[in-house]
């Protein structure tokens, strides 16, 4: 397998996830359906509206968690790759002292 890593690119992807997460958090399907009970009062729709609101809230929460998880993993990977780069660079720097003499 070919290995290629640009920690900055991975960091950008993590930032993009954060931005998407903020957008997703602003979507309130639960509030959109909360009013349907007054559209059809006294029936099954009205009785099930609280469950409906809860279901949409859960569904979006799950989506946000998934997005958050991916974003966090990308941020961690980016940080890890940067750390590896730094460590490797430091190793080479240390090994090169006086070696050419």
């Amino acid at each position: 397998m070919r290995y290629e890593v640009d920690p900055a690119v991975v960091g950008d992807a993590a930032a993009e996830m954060d931005s998407a997460l903020a957008r997703l958090a602003s979507i309130r399907a639960d509030l959109a359906v909360a009013a349907v009970s007054s559209g059809l009062p006294g029936g099954e729709v009205a009785a099930s509206t609280p469950r409906l609101v809860e279901a949409w809230r859960d569904r979006f929460r799950d989506a946000r968690l998934e997005l958050l998880g991916l974003g966090s993993a990308l941020a961690a990977a980016s940080s890890l790759y940067e750390g590896v780069e730094r460590t490797a660079a430091a190793t080479f720097s240390a090994g090169s002292q006086g070696g050419a003499r």
């Binding site: 290629e4 690119v9 997703l24």
Partner: peptide, 27 residues
């Protein structure tokens, strides 16, 4: 309102699809 929500979700999906990570390969 639900249709507006759908459009917002669609915008998030588009955003994720557009942002392909280049310069990163491996397991």
């Amino acid at each position: 309102r639900l249709e507006t929500c759908r459009l917002d979700v669609e915008a998030v999906v588009i955003r994720l699809l557009r942002h392909r990570v280049r310069g990163w390969s491996g397991p």
